[in-house]
Each structure stands twice: as C-alpha cells, then as structure tokens.
C-alpha cells in the first residue's frame, strides 16, 4: 500500500492504495465518486472515461501509481466546464439517455472531442466515440447531440 496525492476536479485528495489499483476503483471506492462507471475493466467500453491531464482516459486500466501529478477531471466536474455544461444540457434536451450507465463515459468522450474538434464531422464523431459502448443503443442520439452541442458552442 502506498499513499498518493491526486488532484481530482481541482481538489487535492490523498488516498492509500495498492499502486496497481486502477484509478477507476480509487475514484469509486476511496473517493466515493461513483459517476465514473465500471463496465468491463479492459478498456473495451469507455464507461470509466475521465480526463487525465486533459487526455480522455480509460480509468479502469490506469494504475493509480501512473497518474502522477496529472489533474483528473470526472463527470462530476462537467457541470462547471463550459463545454461539459452545454453537452450535458443537450444530452437532456435531446433525450439521449436510456439506462444511462454508459453516459458518463460518453459525455467525457464527447467533451474531449468537442474541445479539440469544435466542428466534428460524422467521421470525427464515429472515430472519437468509437470505443464507447452503449448496450441500450443510444448512438443515433449521441451522434445528433454532439452535432447540436457543436452548433451551440460555435
């Protein structure tokens, strides 16, 4: 067990964990931030996506020891993010979610996409969102909501 200092959504947190513990479980179990979801544990579904040093990251495969001093942003911080806020609002107004379990990860990926690609094409959307699984099949609406968000942000 080792102690790590993590900067999560702007706050410094200290956790004591096995260095190999994926960041996902530190967020969920030690920091009680359950908005970031466990879906597969092998980076196949993207439900665990957070922004690590600005990079959309699958927290289920990143050991806490490799986080180092990079700031972590989770879904819980998206309401305070100018892009995140718009994406969340559009997600609601376009009735994107069904079961909702994958949507934290979908939104984290969508925000990362829109931050670097303000006017994404269909291909951009498909490629960037390509690793986020949704079993309810909300893809059609996610695609549309990203386009609407881009328009609103533009």
């Amino acid at each position: 067990m080792e102690t790590f200092k993590l900067t999560v959504n702007g706050q410094v947190k200290e956790v004591t964990a096995d260095p190999g513990t994926p960041l996902l479980w530190v967020l969920r179990e030690d920091l009680k931030m359950t908005g970031t979801k466990y879906g597969c544990g092998i980076a196949a579904c993207g439900a665990c996506t957070v922004h690590l040093g600005g990079v959309p990251t699958r927290s289920c495969v990143v050991p806490v020891a490799l986080v180092r001093n990079r700031p972590i942003l989770t879904i819980e911080a998206m309401a305070d993010d100018p892009v995140g806020r718009v994406v969340q609002d559009v997600w609601v107004s376009e009735d994107v979610v069904q079961c909702g379990y994958c949507q934290s990860g979908q939104i984290m990926s969508a925000v990362a996409l829109l931050k670097s690609t303000p006017k994404p094409t269909d291909k951009d959307i498909e490629e960037s969102m390509g690793g986020n699984l949704c079993r309810c099949g909300t893809y059609v609406r996610i695609r549309q909501a990203i386009k609407t968000s881009a328009r609103q942000l533009g």
Partner: peptide
C-alpha cells in the same frame, strides 16, 4: 415528454445498484 432521469444520468449523480455504498 422528456425523461425524468436524464439530468442525474448526465452529471454522474444517478446511483445504480453498483454504486450502493
């Protein structure tokens, strides 16, 4: 009519069974 549960499912506050603590 839009879903009642969208807001919580988009900001991480919705608790699912796996989130029970």
């Amino acid at each position: 009519v839009r879903r009642l549960d969208s807001g919580a499912k988009c900001n991480g506050s919705q608790k699912f069974g796996l989130d029970v603590d």
